[in-house]
Amino acid sequence: MAFSRARRNLIAELGAHAILLTFTVIALFPVLLVLINSLKTKKAIFRAPLAPPDAETFDLIGYATVLAQGNFPFYFWNSLFVTLGSLFLVLLLGAMAAFALSEYRFPFNRFVALYMALGIMVPIRLGTVGILNLMVATGLVNTHWALILVYTAQGLPLSIFILSEFMAVVSKDLKAAGRIDGLSEYAIFFRLVLPLVRPAMATVAVFTMIPIWNDLWFPLILAPAEETKTLTLGAQVFVGQFVSNWNAILAAMALAIIPVLILYLIFSRQLIRGITAGAVK
């Protein structure tokens, strides 16, 4: 809106656009590089990595390899299941904890909130050995649940932290009106509060989703079995110590972008809808 201010001068506006465009180009360049090279022959990738594919160098061999690998659709499904499962739990549990922390007064409320937030600063990988022991003891190794539980734990601190800030500003009167009308605390949470913090939920979803989707560490340690392999782990078969199948790696990476892109589009729509949905006043 600030841009439509009548006396905004043209140079400042061009400057702003130039900066934003530069940034966009820098951010998108690697993605573009992956996409164009995934469509080229192996020789062409090395000879002219920046050139777009032409009639001579165009080759779908990478995609063919990936899809012929047989298990790839299955890896896709594993990644998607783990990501969506973790995302669901992070958002649900995070929002519920945030609601409780911001809405109810109970002993050690502040302390609990602080304790939860500390998780943001402690990398969960430090606990890998402990986690692995735990998973072995509970027999969860090589199951989707091993990953989902770890990712949920990893995502919760930030989710609780961000969401409780947003929940704290949801109109106290609105919740009071709901209580007087006889809504249960669950109804107040799900029907009144959650829709109003939807933009924050979408933000948290994006922040949570990407590291999970891209993670290699925990799939490698906790769920390396064929039937629980995720996409990032699956793509490692093309990475060799001496020779890598670059066509296949690039094709797998290009394909891996699609689901996150779709999820991102869904969340960003929510984000915009949340902002424009005329709240309390």
């Binding site: 009167d173 009106a177 829709p195 006043k281």
Partner: peptide, 28 residues
């Protein structure tokens, strides 16, 4: 609160943003 036989009107109106006027009134 719902069983005290009371109704309350707030400074910020506190209407349910996702419900129509009719449903706002009907909810209780």
């Amino acid at each position: 609160p719902a069983k005290r036989g009371i109704a309350m009107v707030f400074q910020t109106y506190a209407l349910y943003p996702h419900l129509t006027v009719r449903d706002n009134m009907a909810l209780g």
